[in-house]
Amino acid sequence: MGKDSKLILDPLADNNPITIQVLGICSALAITAELEASIVMSISVLFVLAVGNVVISLMRNIIPSKIRIIVQLIVVATLVIIVDLVLKAFAYELSKTLSVFVGLIITNCIIMGRFEAFALGNSPWRSFLDGIGNSLGYAVILIIVGFFRELLGSGTLLGIPVLGNPIPGELSGLYAYGYENNGFMLLSPMALIVVGIIIWVQRTKNKALIED
Protein backbone atom coordinates (compact mmCIF):
# COMPACT_ATOMS: atom_id res chain seq x y z
CA MET A 1 0.00 0.00 0.00
CA GLY A 2 2.92 2.33 0.73
CA LYS A 3 3.92 2.11 -2.91
CA ASP A 4 0.45 2.99 -4.07
CA SER A 5 0.10 6.02 -1.84
CA LYS A 6 3.47 7.22 -3.11
CA LEU A 7 1.96 7.31 -6.60
CA ILE A 8 -0.54 9.87 -5.39
CA LEU A 9 1.64 11.86 -3.01
CA ASP A 10 4.84 12.17 -5.04
CA PRO A 11 3.44 14.33 -7.84
CA LEU A 12 1.92 16.71 -5.32
CA ALA A 13 5.32 18.10 -4.39
CA ASP A 14 8.65 16.48 -5.15
CA ASN A 15 7.72 15.24 -8.59
CA ASN A 16 5.20 17.89 -9.49
CA PRO A 17 4.20 17.73 -13.16
CA ILE A 18 4.48 21.47 -13.68
CA THR A 19 7.38 22.60 -11.55
CA ILE A 20 9.58 19.51 -11.87
CA GLN A 21 8.53 17.48 -14.92
CA VAL A 22 7.79 20.59 -17.02
CA LEU A 23 4.52 19.17 -18.36
CA GLY A 24 1.25 20.96 -19.03
CA ILE A 25 2.68 24.46 -18.90
CA CYS A 26 0.67 25.99 -21.74
CA SER A 27 -2.70 25.50 -20.10
CA ALA A 28 -1.35 26.52 -16.71
CA LEU A 29 -0.50 29.88 -18.21
CA ALA A 30 -3.51 30.41 -20.40
CA ILE A 31 -6.39 29.94 -18.02
CA THR A 32 -5.23 30.95 -14.56
CA ALA A 33 -6.45 34.53 -14.63
CA GLU A 34 -9.49 33.32 -12.68
CA LEU A 35 -9.63 30.82 -9.84
CA GLU A 36 -12.84 29.27 -11.15
CA ALA A 37 -11.35 28.48 -14.56
CA SER A 38 -8.33 26.92 -12.85
CA ILE A 39 -10.58 24.62 -10.85
CA VAL A 40 -12.70 23.61 -13.84
CA MET A 41 -9.60 22.86 -15.89
CA SER A 42 -8.12 20.82 -13.03
CA ILE A 43 -11.24 18.68 -12.75
CA SER A 44 -11.36 18.11 -16.52
CA VAL A 45 -7.72 17.06 -16.59
CA LEU A 46 -8.27 14.79 -13.59
CA PHE A 47 -11.02 12.99 -15.45
CA VAL A 48 -9.25 12.70 -18.81
CA LEU A 49 -5.90 11.71 -17.34
CA ALA A 50 -7.29 9.07 -14.99
CA VAL A 51 -9.50 7.45 -17.63
CA GLY A 52 -6.92 7.85 -20.40
CA ASN A 53 -4.19 6.28 -18.26
CA VAL A 54 -6.41 3.27 -17.61
CA VAL A 55 -7.30 2.88 -21.29
CA ILE A 56 -3.69 3.13 -22.43
CA SER A 57 -2.59 0.77 -19.68
CA LEU A 58 -5.19 -1.79 -20.79
CA MET A 59 -3.95 -1.46 -24.36
CA ARG A 60 -0.27 -1.42 -23.47
CA ASN A 61 0.43 -4.93 -24.73
CA ILE A 62 -1.22 -4.51 -28.10
CA ILE A 63 -0.05 -1.03 -29.11
CA PRO A 64 2.63 -1.24 -31.82
CA SER A 65 5.66 0.68 -30.54
CA LYS A 66 6.30 2.43 -33.85
CA ILE A 67 3.00 4.25 -33.91
CA ARG A 68 2.39 4.50 -30.19
CA ILE A 69 2.34 8.29 -30.22
CA ILE A 70 -0.38 8.41 -32.85
CA VAL A 71 -2.34 5.81 -30.91
CA GLN A 72 -2.00 7.77 -27.68
CA LEU A 73 -3.04 11.02 -29.30
CA ILE A 74 -6.02 9.39 -30.91
CA VAL A 75 -7.13 7.77 -27.66
CA VAL A 76 -7.08 11.05 -25.80
CA ALA A 77 -8.68 12.99 -28.65
CA THR A 78 -11.44 10.39 -29.00
CA LEU A 79 -12.11 10.45 -25.27
CA VAL A 80 -12.36 14.21 -25.19
CA ILE A 81 -14.56 14.42 -28.30
CA ILE A 82 -16.93 11.75 -26.95
CA VAL A 83 -17.29 13.61 -23.68
CA ASP A 84 -17.79 16.86 -25.57
CA LEU A 85 -20.50 15.38 -27.83
CA VAL A 86 -22.35 13.74 -24.96
CA LEU A 87 -22.27 16.92 -22.91
CA LYS A 88 -23.49 18.96 -25.86
CA ALA A 89 -26.47 16.64 -26.20
CA PHE A 90 -27.42 16.16 -22.56
CA ALA A 91 -25.88 19.01 -20.57
CA TYR A 92 -25.65 21.89 -22.99
CA GLU A 93 -25.00 24.59 -20.39
CA LEU A 94 -22.13 22.65 -18.88
CA SER A 95 -20.65 21.92 -22.29
CA LYS A 96 -20.57 25.61 -23.10
CA THR A 97 -18.52 26.29 -20.00
CA LEU A 98 -16.17 23.44 -20.84
CA SER A 99 -15.87 23.93 -24.61
CA VAL A 100 -13.02 26.36 -24.09
CA PHE A 101 -11.01 23.63 -22.46
CA VAL A 102 -11.48 20.91 -25.07
CA GLY A 103 -8.61 22.04 -27.29
CA LEU A 104 -6.43 22.76 -24.30
CA ILE A 105 -6.89 19.26 -22.91
CA ILE A 106 -6.11 17.47 -26.15
CA THR A 107 -2.90 19.42 -26.56
CA ASN A 108 -2.01 19.22 -22.89
CA CYS A 109 1.34 17.50 -22.78
CA ILE A 110 0.79 16.36 -19.19
CA ILE A 111 -1.58 13.75 -20.59
CA MET A 112 0.79 12.51 -23.29
CA GLY A 113 3.71 12.70 -20.90
CA ARG A 114 2.05 10.41 -18.34
CA PHE A 115 0.83 8.00 -21.01
CA GLU A 116 4.34 7.68 -22.32
CA ALA A 117 6.17 7.65 -19.02
CA PHE A 118 3.84 5.57 -16.90
CA ALA A 119 0.72 4.03 -18.37
CA LEU A 120 2.58 2.22 -21.15
CA GLY A 121 4.51 0.19 -18.58
CA ASN A 122 2.19 -0.29 -15.65
CA SER A 123 -0.99 -2.05 -14.61
CA PRO A 124 -4.36 -0.27 -14.96
CA TRP A 125 -4.83 0.27 -11.20
CA ARG A 126 -1.42 1.81 -10.73
CA SER A 127 -1.90 3.92 -13.87
CA PHE A 128 -5.20 5.13 -12.50
CA LEU A 129 -3.53 6.21 -9.26
CA ASP A 130 -0.72 7.85 -11.21
CA GLY A 131 -3.27 9.76 -13.24
CA ILE A 132 -5.05 10.96 -10.10
CA GLY A 133 -1.80 11.91 -8.40
CA ASN A 134 -0.40 13.84 -11.31
CA SER A 135 -3.57 15.73 -12.04
CA LEU A 136 -3.80 16.66 -8.35
CA GLY A 137 -0.24 17.93 -8.51
CA TYR A 138 -1.20 19.90 -11.59
CA ALA A 139 -4.30 21.20 -9.82
CA VAL A 140 -2.28 22.43 -6.82
CA ILE A 141 -0.12 24.69 -8.99
CA LEU A 142 -3.07 25.87 -11.11
CA ILE A 143 -5.06 26.79 -8.04
CA ILE A 144 -2.17 28.62 -6.37
CA VAL A 145 -1.49 30.63 -9.53
CA GLY A 146 -5.20 31.26 -10.12
CA PHE A 147 -5.65 32.35 -6.51
CA PHE A 148 -2.92 34.97 -6.62
CA ARG A 149 -3.71 36.23 -10.10
CA GLU A 150 -7.38 36.72 -9.37
CA LEU A 151 -6.81 38.17 -5.89
CA LEU A 152 -4.14 40.67 -6.95
CA GLY A 153 -5.47 41.28 -10.45
CA SER A 154 -9.16 41.82 -9.86
CA GLY A 155 -9.47 41.83 -6.06
CA THR A 156 -11.95 38.95 -6.19
CA LEU A 157 -11.95 35.22 -5.47
CA LEU A 158 -14.28 32.99 -7.47
CA GLY A 159 -15.85 36.21 -8.68
CA ILE A 160 -16.69 37.44 -5.15
CA PRO A 161 -15.05 40.74 -4.14
CA VAL A 162 -12.85 40.15 -1.10
CA LEU A 163 -10.83 43.33 -0.88
CA GLY A 164 -13.72 45.75 -0.80
CA ASN A 165 -15.43 47.86 -3.42
CA PRO A 166 -13.14 49.45 -6.03
CA ILE A 167 -15.75 51.66 -7.73
CA PRO A 168 -14.75 55.33 -7.37
CA GLY A 169 -17.09 57.13 -5.03
CA GLU A 170 -18.14 53.96 -3.20
CA LEU A 171 -14.70 52.87 -2.03
CA SER A 172 -14.58 50.43 0.83
CA GLY A 173 -12.22 47.89 2.36
CA LEU A 174 -8.60 48.11 1.23
CA TYR A 175 -9.48 50.42 -1.63
CA ALA A 176 -10.47 53.11 0.84
CA TYR A 177 -6.83 53.26 1.91
CA GLY A 178 -5.62 53.85 -1.64
CA TYR A 179 -5.05 50.26 -2.71
CA GLU A 180 -5.45 49.53 -6.43
CA ASN A 181 -5.78 46.31 -8.37
CA ASN A 182 -2.72 45.32 -10.33
CA GLY A 183 -4.21 44.76 -13.78
CA PHE A 184 -0.88 43.40 -14.90
CA MET A 185 -1.52 40.21 -12.92
CA LEU A 186 -4.28 39.35 -15.36
CA LEU A 187 -1.90 39.22 -18.31
CA SER A 188 -0.41 35.87 -19.17
CA PRO A 189 3.28 36.81 -18.75
CA MET A 190 2.61 37.23 -15.05
CA ALA A 191 1.56 33.59 -14.86
CA LEU A 192 5.07 32.64 -15.97
CA ILE A 193 6.58 34.81 -13.28
CA VAL A 194 4.24 33.47 -10.58
CA VAL A 195 5.14 29.88 -11.54
CA GLY A 196 8.82 30.90 -11.46
CA ILE A 197 8.36 32.16 -7.92
CA ILE A 198 6.55 28.97 -6.89
CA ILE A 199 9.52 26.97 -8.20
CA TRP A 200 11.85 29.23 -6.25
CA VAL A 201 9.96 28.70 -3.01
CA GLN A 202 9.67 24.96 -3.56
CA ARG A 203 13.36 24.48 -4.25
CA THR A 204 14.41 26.65 -1.35
CA LYS A 205 12.45 24.35 0.96
CA ASN A 206 13.73 21.16 -0.67
CA LYS A 207 17.39 21.58 -1.59
CA ALA A 208 17.50 18.18 -3.30
CA LEU A 209 15.54 19.60 -6.23
CA ILE A 210 18.07 22.31 -7.09
CA GLU A 211 19.54 21.95 -10.60
CA ASP A 212 23.35 21.93 -11.09
Binding site: A37, V100, R149
Partner: peptide
Protein backbone atom coordinates in the same frame (compact mmCIF):
# COMPACT_ATOMS: atom_id res chain seq x y z
CA UNK B 1 -17.40 33.22 -27.74
CA UNK B 2 -16.04 29.84 -28.59
CA UNK B 3 -12.74 29.87 -26.80
CA UNK B 4 -11.59 33.21 -25.45
CA UNK B 5 -9.26 33.24 -22.46
CA UNK B 6 -11.23 32.59 -19.24
CA UNK B 7 -11.06 35.60 -16.97
CA UNK B 8 -10.00 37.92 -19.78
CA UNK B 9 -11.55 37.77 -23.25
CA UNK B 10 -14.22 35.38 -22.00
Amino acid sequence: HKGETPGLGA
